[in-house]
Design a binder for these strands. Structure first.
Lengths: 150, 150
DNA sequence: TATTGTTATACTCTATAACTATA
DNA sequence: TATAGTTATAGAGTATAACAATA
């Protein structure tokens, strides 16, 4: 965790990021509610949207909750036909989750609605938007590199 | 909502911001769990941390939930001595919420723990941290100005 | 009549523990 | 024995509707 790395500008920038994202929570919740989807259900759908069969336990890790919670969350998604449980071939204890066509469509619809929602960065001049985007790209790249190491 | 204003760089930047904050959710939840505080309870504490007496209904708006939910959330905070209900003088229907000394201390402790948590922006060179911070300051300022108008 | 906060109800999320079936 | 997922249970968040006190 490189303790000597913490710098003052990054701390303030990190606080500002949260100050920016906090107010967007209302739009986020409204967007989900209009589709009768709870936040954990949305996170599950998003995790599965890549199309890769995913064990229940991996989804639990993504949701930062216990395996037992995932049972109910997936039950409700499956009842709506957004997700399917499949037996894994290599280990008969494992169940793979796969997103359905309907699930994919709902995910795309919500992702588009969130993109089209209020964007506080749009208030900046285009030149600054670009500069900000470039810096964020580098931060995300660094984050991915760090995750690969850990 | 100035429909012609949406620009490509801001949209990608906004996505990157969420890609940055998403993985921090684990640390956030752990930090709260260690103090036996739920996310809504933390939001309530943070809202009251400025010290201003706040009506229940205003807290409900901050939490994006119904008034009826706030009753239970505040019940639990009050039982722990973190918050107090007081009668408002001007309207006897209204109850003002006020943070206590213990509440203030817990808020400060958690805020410090969150600041000290993993910060993906710390991986950037200091010069870029400063540039990012300056751009975010302007975005937050623009957001505040917009909120004032609406 | 309208509004603030509460109560009642039902559903969902969450953690823990006990269980089944695999490995 | 250990692990993946389920079930059971209890506490907490959430929305709706009905209610009391006040405006």
């Amino acid at each position: 965790m490189a303790t000597g790395t913490r710098q003052a500008p990054a701390v303030e920038a990190w606080r500002l990021v949260h100050e920016l994202t906090g107010p967007a929570r209302g739009w986020f919740l409204d967007t989900l509610r209009e589709r009768d989807l709870s936040p954990p259900q949305w996170l599950a759908l998003r995790r599965l949207s890549c199309g890769e069969p995913t064990p229940m336990g991996e989804l639990a890790a993504t949701l930062h909750c216990d395996n037992s919670n995932v049972t109910g969350i997936v039950d409700r998604l499956e009842r709506r036909g957004l997700v399917e449980r499949r037996a894994a071939q290599h280990d008969r204890r494992v169940k793979h989750l796969v997103i359905t066509q309907d699930g994919r469509a709902l995910h795309a619809e919500i992702a588009a609605a969130l993109d089209a929602g209020p964007n506080p960065l749009a208030a900046l001049p285009r030149e600054e938007q670009r500069a900000l985007r470039d810096l964020l790209r580098r931060a995300v790249a660094a984050q991915r590199a760090a995750d690969g190491d850990d």
